[in-house]
C-alpha cells in the first residue's frame, strides 16, 4: 500500500477543482446580475471596462470570504443603490412591479369563468 495516498490525492485535487469550478460558475452568475456602472445596459459580465473588472474582483473576494449570493448583492445594493442589480429586489417600492401582473391575470381569469358559468 505504498501508493495508497495517490487516489486520495487525486480525489482531493478533483474536489478542489470542482469547488473552484463551482465558485467560478457562481461568480459568473453573479456577474450577470450586476450592472456595469459606466456602460449602457450591459452587465459587468459583458463589459471589460475598468470599473467592471474592479467589481468582478470584489465579488470574487466576497465569494472566497464565504459570503452568500444574497449577502453580496445586498452589499452592492447598499453601496451603489438598487440600480446596480439587474433584477430589482422585492420591497415596498417594487411591489406593484412584481405583483400587479399576477393579480391582473387572476382577476381576469376569475371574471371569464364566473361570467360563463352564469350563462351556461
Amino acid at each position: 500500500m505504498k501508493f495508497g495516498f495517490v487516489p486520495i490525492l487525486v480525489c482531493t485535487c478533483i474536489l478542489l477543482c470542482f469547488s473552484a469550478f463551482a465558485e467560478e460558475t457562481r461568480a459568473i452568475n453573479l456577474f450577470k446580475e450586476v450592472r456595469c456602472l459606466v456602460c449602457q445596459g450591459q452587465t459587468i459580465h459583458e463589459s471589460n471596462a475598468e470599473i467592471a473588472e474592479d467589481l468582478k474582483t470584489l465579488i470574487r473576494e466576497k465569494i472566497v470570504e464565504g459570503k452568500t449570493d444574497k449577502e453580496i448583492k445586498g452589499f452592492l445594493a447598499e453601496k451603489y443603490g438598487d440600480w446596480i442589480l439587474m433584477t430589482p429586489p422585492v420591497k415596498e417600492l417594487t411591489y406593484v412591479l412584481w405583483f400587479a401582473p399576477i393579480i391582473f391575470m387572476a382577476i381576469g381569469l376569475i371574471v371569464i369563468f364566473r361570467r360563463k358559468k352564469e350563462k351556461a
Partner: peptide, 22 residues
C-alpha cells in the same frame, strides 16, 4: 411595467432601478 417602472420610480421617488431579463 418592466419598461416603464424604472422611469416611474426615477420621476416619482428619485430612485433608479434596473429591470433586467430575470
Amino acid at each position: 411595467l418592466g419598461t416603464m417602472y424604472p422611469l416611474a420610480t426615477d420621476l416619482l421617488y428619485n430612485q433608479s432601478l434596473t429591470v433586467g431579463p430575470q
